[in-house]
Simulated scan of single mutants.
Amino acid sequence: MESQLLTVSTGGRDSVVDLTDQAGQFVRGRGDGLLHVFVPHATAGVAILETGAGSDEDLLAALADLLPADDRWRHRHGSRGHGRSHVMPALVAPYATVPVLSGRLALGTWQSLCLVDLNVDNPVREVRLSFLAG
């Protein structure tokens, strides 16, 4: 298995960061297999969704409705509402696996591979890309 660690800046705000191009570069020329994307953080996730047409903002709005940044959370260190960031990975898993065919991501036409982060206290994230040849 081959692996690479990306460093991603989220800017210290609720974010959806498109990783598709970086993931595509990582698998280019590797043949058939699986790309596994994992964020080794307790407060971030990986989603496959359409970006650039409002879906990324819609996801953040839906998560804000489901997980408000207020004082209801028992996990209370950090900024107001930080506990929601620890619940989010139960809704947006910290991993995704994508088929790779002939060295290209086998995503649908409008699908993008994205980091989802609600933790405003951590503006820099790591994302591990791992390729398992078929």
Results as ranks from 00 to 15, higher is better:
His36Ala: 14
Phe38Gln: 11
Val39Trp: 09
Val39Phe: 08
Val39His: 11
Pro40Met: 03
Gly45Lys: 05
Ile48Gln: 01
Leu49Asn: 08
Gly52Lys: 03
Gly54Tyr: 04
Asp56Gly: 10
Asp58Trp: 03
Asp58Arg: 12
Asp58Lys: 11
Asp58Leu: 09
Leu60Cys: 10
Ala61Tyr: 04
Leu63Asn: 08
Asp65Met: 04
Asp65Gly: 08
Leu66Ile: 14
Leu67Gly: 03
Leu67Ala: 05
Pro68Gly: 00
Asp70Pro: 06
Asp70Phe: 00
Asp71Pro: 06
Trp73Glu: 04
Trp73Gly: 06
Arg74Met: 09
Arg74Gln: 15
His75Arg: 11
His77Leu: 03
His77Thr: 01
Ser79Tyr: 10
Arg80Lys: 15
Gly81Phe: 02
Gly81Glu: 10
Gly83His: 04
Arg84Trp: 10
Arg84His: 13
His86Ile: 01
Met88Val: 00
Met88Arg: 03
Met88Asp: 05
Ala90Thr: 12
Val92Tyr: 08
Ala93Met: 06
Ala93Arg: 12
Ala93Cys: 08
Pro94Thr: 00
Tyr95Ala: 13
Val100Tyr: 14
Leu101Thr: 15
Gly103Phe: 06
Gly103Glu: 14
Arg104Trp: 04
Arg104Leu: 13
Arg104Gln: 15
Leu105His: 12
Leu107Trp: 09
Gly108Cys: 04
Thr109Gln: 00
Trp110Leu: 07
Gln111Ser: 08
Ser112Pro: 12
Cys114Pro: 13
Cys114Asp: 11
